[in-house]
Amino acid sequence: MPEQTTSAAAVLDTEDLRSTIAEILDVDPSEVTDTADFKEDLDVDSLLALEILVTLERKYQVKMEESNLQLMRSFKVVHDLLAEKLAA
């Protein structure tokens, strides 16, 4: 919901991020390995990818671009993208 905001930007905890993504994908966090391909291995479609993007924006108080959707191929890529946004 749009009203949900946190007072301070969350810190990037790798395992917490893994659990967050696993929850959106409705899979066990152990399946979200660093390199598992979202589309091929985890059956992620573009709507789920947008769910991930929007959830991360809210949780970590960052701004993503719609073009970032194409880049989201694995946990590692998402993690690095987020780390880069948080460092900016």
Binding site: P2, L50, L53, V54, K63, E65, E66
Partner: peptide, 8 residues
């Protein structure tokens, strides 16, 4: 509607 912060 559903979108990123830019679309918000």
């Amino acid at each position: 509607h559903f979108g990123t912060a830019a679309q918000q």
